[in-house]
Nucleic acid binder design. Structure first.
Length: 419
DNA sequence: TCTGGGGTCCTAGGACCC
DNA sequence: TCTGGGGTCCTAGGACCC
């Protein structure tokens, strides 16, 4: 039943748009003096977050330390990232896209999918021409370049937009699919990570075409649902729709921190508590409460150990969650084992006012008091920073402690004891 | 790149219930 | 009491993405 691979024409048309070296491009667009120069963004983090194409040409890469860039490329312009600026450009870019089709999915800050099906007549243009106009409009209005890919499915459109990198426009029609998949390593297909790549190699699959040409039974036998779906998409059969999302809600919120592996119980617990406080703070800022708390530890071998805790009622208050976190920690932590990361995830989220209190007067009163208390605390945190005010358990976090790769974390030591 | 941080979705297996 | 099949729900862990 699932055959295609050679399809006549364009029964569906999905566009994928990918802004090139987005953060660096925005900086160049805003400040023309930076045009043609190697621009590096990420000064505040100490590592390269984005590099302009001029910088890439020199050999500057993402993840490189800023110190190394300074030493090896003194001509590079190094900037702090300005997320608000990028978000504005991003929104404007999506608006332009919406001027061509109403069906737009904001996939990430610098990427979008759009459905162009049936719009050739409306625009009196081929899909290629539509793609070209989108690119030109963005270039003219925002001063940045994007790479555009158009094909039958999201997975193929991703391959297309990736085909020519800065300022590209690539169409993959149903007839030419095999031509593009032929030399594409399987690992470059969206959704195929290192684990699946290894499995593919074991099965004698090296290119995207090898995968796409495999028999349906074979795929179903050796792979799970997500990869079966990718197999369909590579053959031009649409599985993933373009979702018109209004990216305003989260399914989960998390906070985690990595450090040089340690078996120090007190340290691990305090880091965990600190993450809990932070993630709760974040949830309150979004006006969200969680019905479930997930706590996890990552050991030296990168194995994750986690525990899910169902909460009796939605909350985002550390005071209520701290005892549960402590218990979870006691269950997961093994004496003598070193851990490299701890983290907390809040999930099963709901808006703050969406649940009615059916509890007794007394507890509803205490909840109200808690809310008031945390409102006050939040405003202090906003003013003076996250580490100014913490619960007692998180306290050791604020001491100086060897952290990641020999770097130490220095946080002022002045917390107010609480609760 | 030997592996930071914040997300999403899927699955195997156990518990529980006819 | 033992046995078995089937469905559903939940949990811990895995894989992948930007």
């Amino acid at each position: 039943m699932a055959q295609p691979l050679n399809i006549h024409g364009f029964p569906q048309a999905i566009l994928h748009l990918d802004a090139n070296a987005f953060f660096a491009s925005v900086e160049q667009a805003v400040n023309p003096e930076l045009k043609g120069k190697p621009v590096v963004v990420g000064k505040e983090r100490g590592i390269v977050t984005a590099v302009s194409y001029e910088g890439k040409a020199l050999g500057i890469k993402r993840g490189m330390t800023i110190a190394e860039v300074k030493r090896r490329f003194p001509q590079a312009v190094i900037l702090e990232s300005d997320y608000e600026k990028y978000a504005l450009f991003s929104q404007r870019m999506f608006e332009i896209l919406r001027g061509f089709t109403p069906i737009v999915e904001e996939y990430s800050i610098d990427e979008a999918f759009a459905d162009l099906k049936g719009l050739r007549r409306y625009h009196r243009a081929s899909y290629e021409e539509i793609g070209y106009r989108i690119k030109e409009t963005i270039k003219k209005e925002l001063g940045i370049t994007v790479s555009v890919g158009i094909s039958l499915t999201k997975v193929l459109a991703k391959i297309a937009s990736n085909w020519i990198k800065p300022d590209g426009l690539t169409l993959i029609s149903g007839r030419e699919i095999h031509h593009y998949l032929e030399k594409l390593p399987i690992s470059e297909v969206w959704g195929i990570g290192p684990q699946t790549e290894a499995l593919c190699h074991k099965l004698g699959i090296y290119t995207a075409l090898d995968f796409a040409r495999a028999k349906e039974e074979f795929i179903k036998k050796h792979f799970t649902k997500p990869h079966y779906e990718i197999w369909l998409e590579l053959r031009g059969i649409q599985v993933y729709p373009v979702l018109e999302t209004f990216k305003n809600s989260y399914r989960s919120l998390s906070k985690s921190i990595s450090f040089t592996p340690t078996a120090d119980k007190e340290f691990l617990l305090s880091q965990s508590a600190f993450n809990l406080e932070q993630v709760c703070f974040k949830a309150r800022r979004y006006g969200l409460l969680a019905k479930k708390l997930i706590y996890f530890l990552k050991d030296e071998e990168f194995k994750v150990h986690s525990i899910e805790i169902n909460l009796p009622y939605p909350t985002a208050y550390p005071k209520e969650l701290l005892p549960l976190l402590r218990k979870a920690f006691e269950n997961l932590f093994y004496e003598g084992i070193s851990y490299r990361q701890v983290g907390v995830i809040l999930t099963d989220l709901s808006p703050k006012r969406s649940f009615q209190l059916t509890l007794f007067e007394k507890s509803s009163q205490s909840i109200e008091m808690k809310e008031k208390l945390y409102e006050a605390l939040d405003s202090i945190i906003l003013k003076y920073g996250r580490t100014f005010l913490t619960h007692g358990v998180s306290l050791p976090v604020t001491k100086e402690k060897p952290l990641y790769k020999g770097k130490s974390l220095k946080i002022p030591l002045l917390p107010i004891h609480l609760l």
